[in-house]
Write a protein that binds this DNA or RNA. Structure first.
Lengths: 194, 194
DNA sequence: ACGAGGTTTTACAGGTCAGTATAGGAAGGA
DNA sequence: TCCTTCCTATACTGACCTGTAAAACCTCGT
């Protein structure tokens, strides 16, 4: 029952769902290595046996936690993307979504934070993290093309940096209104590039 | 001998210096919680007793590791700042320094990574991290004022985001030439704002 | 009625964690 | 000579770590 990849967060038993919700909060708030499986099981109101029956290993639980975060974030952004008629609006969708997102996630990017603790590329969470970042960059780049930017890859990279910087700044510079400043800057960059 | 703050990295005994160098590499490469004091002592060629005689606790060793990183980074940036006659050059100094820095530090920002593992504000490393970020923002803001920007605080925040984003992207998007793109973008922002 | 899947309970293995105890060796200045 | 500082060596504590063992209970679909 030792999994090498993340589980599908959609098809979990009720207990597994509770475990995942509990683990997500604990991992994000305290760091991954700092949280033991005993604590996760206890806080979920579940025995450790159940945790291992459902997830097989802590590695898999971590990967599933990040995959779940990824799904939620993508859904939030894509809802706004599909609502936007103009490509320039789609370029700004991740920044608009950031406003909702950071309210519940003030400790910076869960993926960046996790990567800091998981240097091993063989860890099943690794690919989840890398793919999340690739997805965001690809979204920027496609919208940049559709908006008619001269250098879509360059505009995408710029927006990506601003986005990541604002997300990180939530944790390191809480006195800034990072989302507002970043969104405003994104507008400027889009205007300049198209 | 239990310290509540970081030690001064300048005034260490030879063994303590070796410990700090070893610990810095291990912490940055593997994460802080993942590295035990036994390993640090063994890799430094030192007994655990010596480690505790010099640093008093792992907390203090971690804080001293980050303070040392902070000193080196500030020295690198300030050398370029003092070499720059124009304020617009000083605004770009951190981006120029990034080129040298990231060669040896490809896993993103050591302070952001550490903060991901250290949520407790009472941890002695916490203030080191926050002050490093405040210092960078203050440097941007002062140079922005001297350059005659209309909104120095806004320009500083923008450059800060781009800087943090590029540093993070080293770890999450290694295919990008993050330093070049960020430096180029910084030039653009400075031109736009002054 | 029966079986299967999900879960509970208690206990344990084997290892690693941060930190301490105790005792002594080596060098250098007063 | 004596004292202090730095360091070595070995062993230990008590807690916590991930993961497993074995047996039984509950619920639900068929």
């Amino acid at each position: 029952m030792n999994h090498r990849t993340a589980l599908d967060p959609e098809t979990l038993t009720p207990s597994a769902r509770r475990i995942l919700i509990t683990a997500a909060a604990l991992f994000y708030d305290n760091g991954i290595a700092a949280v033991g499986v005993d604590r996760i099981a206890a806080d979920s109101g579940v025995t450790k046996r159940t945790l291992y029956n459902r997830f097989g290993s802590k590695e898999t639980l971590v990967a599933t936690y990040l995959l779940e975060r990824d799904r939620r974030w993508r859904a939030l952004v894509e809802r706004r993307v599909h609502r936007s008629a103009r490509a320039t609006e789609r370029l700004l969708a991740p920044f608009e979504a950031l406003g909702e997102w950071t309210v519940q996630h003030p400790r910076g990017c869960a993926f960046v934070n996790a990567l800091a603790e998981l240097p091993d590329p063989a860890h099943p969470a690794h690919r989840v993290i890398i793919e999340e970042k690739q997805w965001l960059r690809a979204l920027f780049e496609q919208a940049a093309e559709e908006a008619g930017a001269e250098r879509p890859d360059l505009l995408a990279a710029r927006l990506y940096f601003v986005h990541e910087g604002a997300l990180t700044a939530q944790a390191t510079a809480p006195d800034l209104d990072a989302v507002e400043i970043a969104t405003d800057l994104a507008h400027l960059l889009v205007r300049t590039a198209v």
